[in-house]
Structure formats: C-alpha cells, structure tokens
C-alpha cells in the first residue's frame, strides 16, 4: 500500500468525511508547516498565484486571522469578505453570492456561516475548493484538526487517550468535529454537560456521555472545555452562571482527578470564571495558546493539500 499523499476531495466540509489516513496526512503535513512559521522569512511559494476568498458571515477574528496568516504564508492572494448577518436578510442569497464569487474564479473559498450545511450548499454551486471554517452547529473541522495536532504534539499519540469534553455540547460545532476526529483516531471520548445541553442521540456518536463531571475528568489525559454562550444560556439551559461554574466549571481542585500530566484545552474565546477558572486557564497544564499557534500550521496544511487534491479528483 502506498502512503496517502493528497486529499482525494475537492472540499473540506466536515471531519465526518475524512478517513483516518487523511487526518494523519493533514497532521503530518502540519508539522512541516509549523516549521515554516518559525523561520525568519515565514513564507513559501506553494500557493503562489492562487486566490483564496475568506467569506465570513459571522464575526470571528480568531479563525479569520488564522486562515489569513496561513494563506499568506503559502503566498496565496487573499481576499476577505465579511458579511454582516443583518444584511443577509435583505441582501442577496448565499447562492447568488457564491455564483458571483465563482464568476471571478477563485481557487478556494473559506466559509464561516451561522447555518449548518451552508458550506455544502456552496460546494454544490462552486467549482472552487470549499473549506469549512465553521457552519452553524455542525462542524468546525480545522479547529478539531488543530486540537488533534496539539494533543499529538504533547502526548505523541491520539489512540487510547481519554479526552473529556465539557460544556455546551448542544450548540457546539467544535464538539461535533472533535468527536468525529477523536473517535476515528481511537481516542476514548467522554462528553459532559448539563442534560439541557446534551444533543439527542449522543449515545450513537460513539462517546461516553455523562452529566457527572468527576466521571468525565477521572484519569483524563486531555480536558477540553467548550464555550458557554452567555447571552442565551442563563436562565434557559441552566439557572445561573454562578451555578454552572459550581457544577461544571474547571477548577484546580477538580483537575486533580485527571492524570497528573493532563492538558487543558479551550477553543476560545474563554469565559473565565464560567467554564474555566483563571488559575486553570493560565496554569501549567494549559495548552490554550499552543492551540492558537498550531491553528495556522494546520490551516496551511489543509489549504496546501486541498490545492492539490482538487486536481487529483478531477483526473481520477
């Protein structure tokens, strides 16, 4: 068997579509990309002459910046389009926007959108490669890839690790992508949150679900916290932020039940004192800033591999 050397697909829409071999290829490639970011001249000509459009329907400084740096380090020409969600209602449809962009023949479109499956719609319309930068509550594949990269960097493996993911499971695209990726790579995934924030049919996701946080953390190699969306949560899904923190907040005391070399992750932006105590966020176990740094390398890998993958698919 020859080793996989390209993604045999036009788009990266979801981790659910990827094979374990493809995931490994992306992570391996990201290691080389990480080195590029450590050079004095942080730029390689790999995507010279390629046009990448960052089409963002949701504000996201972090993800957009990360993609933009990744694109620039690969020498792609980048174009940022931020569409305020208010203008979507009266403005043109996503399909029309896609057709207009397509007419300008970009090579790739990085899409962030508040509707699950928006990137699938774009993919059906566009010949350009589509990279999902987060679609509604569905997936955020590059986040899961950078999480996996960060875990692998610290733990040297993914298989067999106990990963506890805690927080708003219901609305989290980061959760869905991470479950897909980690279970494909052989990790033991535990998810934990109040029953009001537990997705239906969670058992069918191949994870252990619990609302008892001690169960989730016990002997965990990795603890990943998910953001609580303050504005719509309080009073609706749980009584108060204070109470949430008292039951599910990650404190140093709770963390003692995890393995001694546990790492703490958070996709950001963090709510200190809600899902995570500041001592934990800033503590020695935290790899939260590594995640941000690795995001660029992983996104470079994805962009690079898709740029070739489209060709492969067309010829196959």
């Amino acid at each position: 068997m020859t080793a996989l050397t390209a993604l045999r697909r036009k788009d990266l829409l979801a981790i659910a579509d990827l094979s374990p071999e493809e995931i490994s290829l992306i992570l391996d490639t990201a290691e080389a990309m990480k080195e590029v970011g450590e050079r004095p001249i942080k730029k390689v000509p790999a995507l010279r002459g390629k046009t990448v459009v960052n089409l963002f329907y949701e504000p996201s400084t972090r993800t957009r910046t990360s993609f933009e740096i990744a694109e620039k380090r690969l020498s792609a020409d980048t174009l940022n389009i931020a569409v305020a969600s208010s203008s979507v209602v009266k403005g043109e449809t996503l399909a029309d926007t896609a057709l207009n962009l397509e007419a300008m023949n970009p090579d790739m479109i990085v899409l962030r959108h508040s509707s699950s499956g928006a990137c699938h719609l774009l993919s059906r319309i566009c010949k350009s490669a589509i990279v999902n930068a987060g679609d509604g509550m569905h997936e955020h594949p590059t986040q899961a890839l950078l999480d996996a990269f960060t875990i692998r960097e610290r733990k040297k493996k993914l298989k067999g690790l106990k990963v506890a993911i805690i927080g708003d499971l219901l609305h989290s695209r980061v959760l869905r992508s991470n479950i897909q990726l980690l279970t494909k790579m052989g990790s033991e995934v535990w998810v934990c949150g109040p029953p009001t924030l537990m997705p239906a049919g969670i058992a069918q996701f191949g994870v252990q679900a619990t609302s008892v946080i001690d169960e989730a953390i016990a002997d965990a190699d990795v603890v990943m916290l998910l953001r609580i969306q303050l504005e719509r949560m309080e009073g609706a899904y749980f009584p108060s932020l204070r109470e949430y923190f008292s039951v599910f907040g990650m404190t140093e005391a709770r963390l003692k039940q995890a393995k001694s070399d546990v790492i703490i992750m958070h996709p950001g932006p963090m709510n200190r004192g809600v899902e995570i105590a500041s001592e934990v966020a800033d503590g020695p176990y935290s790899v939260i800033l590594d995640q941000v740094a690795n995001g660029v390398a992983v996104r470079m890998a994805v962009l690079y591999l898709l740029a070739g993958g489209a060709n492969d698919e067309a010829a196959a």
């Binding site: 997936e139 869905r176 997705p199 049919g201």
Partner: peptide
C-alpha cells in the same frame, strides 16, 4: 441522532 450530528 441525524439532526444532532448535522447540527440542526
């Protein structure tokens, strides 16, 4: 399960 995994 299906709506949950598709984020609907």
């Amino acid at each position: 399960f299906h709506a949950a995994s598709l984020g609907l």
